[in-house]
Design a protein around this nucleic acid. Sequence first.
DNA 1: AACTGATAATTCATCGATCATCAGTTGATC
DNA 2: GATCAACTGATGATCGATGAATTATCAGTT
Lengths: 230, 230
Amino acid sequence: MTDAAFDIGGDEIPVLSTGEQAYERIKHDIVFGVLRPGQRLPLDRLKSVYGVGISTLREILNRLAPQGLVVAEGQRGFQVAPCSATDLKELADLRLLIESNALAQSFEAGDVEWEGRVVAAHHKLARMEQRLLAGDETGTQQWKRYDFEFHQALVSACGSKALLDLHAGIYDRYLRYQMVFFIFWGPTSTEDHKALLDCALRRDAAEGQRLLREHIHGCIDVALERGLVD
Amino acid sequence: MTDAAFDIGGDEIPVLSTGEQAYERIKHDIVFGVLRPGQRLPLDRLKSVYGVGISTLREILNRLAPQGLVVAEGQRGFQVAPCSATDLKELADLRLLIESNALAQSFEAGDVEWEGRVVAAHHKLARMEQRLLAGDETGTQQWKRYDFEFHQALVSACGSKALLDLHAGIYDRYLRYQMVFFIFWGPTSTEDHKALLDCALRRDAAEGQRLLREHIHGCIDVALERGLVD
DNA sequence: AACTGATAATTCATCGATCATCAGTTGATC
DNA sequence: GATCAACTGATGATCGATGAATTATCAGTT
């Protein structure tokens, strides 16, 4: 069942195993709200939906559990991690703490190569935001991907793999709230990103951290104004 | 095979499933160096050692992988996460960032109940350190457990479950370095803990953070002076 | 002697089967 | 009519079997 490896120009395209593919799909479906928060995850159901065996499924869910996207309650199976306003606030604070710290270190240590990554990521993000503001709603997921890539590029020169991994994990959980509750508040975000880019090139860490705080707080304020379950 | 639930005095003792027990044992063996860093983990071997089936084992290893205690490389099975000086430094910085932040919040929000937890945890830790300084080497693992409980008590009033979970996970990885490389530098640690306790009761967050930085830096400096592989 | 190709042995990834556990339902008794 | 108990259907936890991938071995050739 495993895909064959294509060998193009001597460079191997990484083969995704059956389990790996299903892992990505399930994670995606949780983050983007296809599998709703709190929803139970009966193994038989998932088995037919994602086309993998029971054991492989359990492996996947066990991998997602420590990441906080799935909860495993004792002997009663798995369910999608529930959402709550307090959890969102905690995640926002956590993201701010991690990303803010990484930002400062990255601004300190970033080289020209890093600047290139940041500029490129911002360009792609800005283009996508143009399209969205123009009414093209088709690429919301892609937009969020670019948003992540931009923020990741900003911190990518922090020098600590552990810190980056942590950031990516928290961002995923945070992203889920944005997707599940359709948090998108338009032009403000675009301006924030542009300002962050300028800060990065000026290596102005203090202002960058301030912007990030605004960026994140603005986002969850919008979210909390609308009714979130708690 | 599952243990029966004992019902003593109307309070249920939580039942550990087969997999849960094995999970704790394997995690313990990794953190405390029984399974050495970089060591491969052949499933058949582990199967006989820990007395669980292949699938259950894979579930366990898949749970440990996102926590950074095990690495899963493609189609080549699992191995204990390797150790390196850079990884230790990253972990130390990370622990400092997380714990320092949680400390300040905890000092801010802690009530009398919290003070009680801190005092109790420190008492147990101090007692154990007395025994260790007196030459009783039998309780090193217990000492580390109390060390964790003390630090956890300090931050336990921070108000963010997500932050506490993160702290616990990072502490585990950090603890592994202490255990694998026998990092114990005696009386300094004891004094640090006493000073931290005083800070907590005085709610002096700034001094507490300073002490914590010293505490952690002192610890890894000792570690790096001795030869760690990199 | 060293390199290459084929073959054997080891280890892994995935699967469905089996047993234990839980929740909902029915029926009997007070 | 209410309450508790046994029954039953469904779901989860654990296991070993099976085919696939990787690594090691070895013979044949240059």
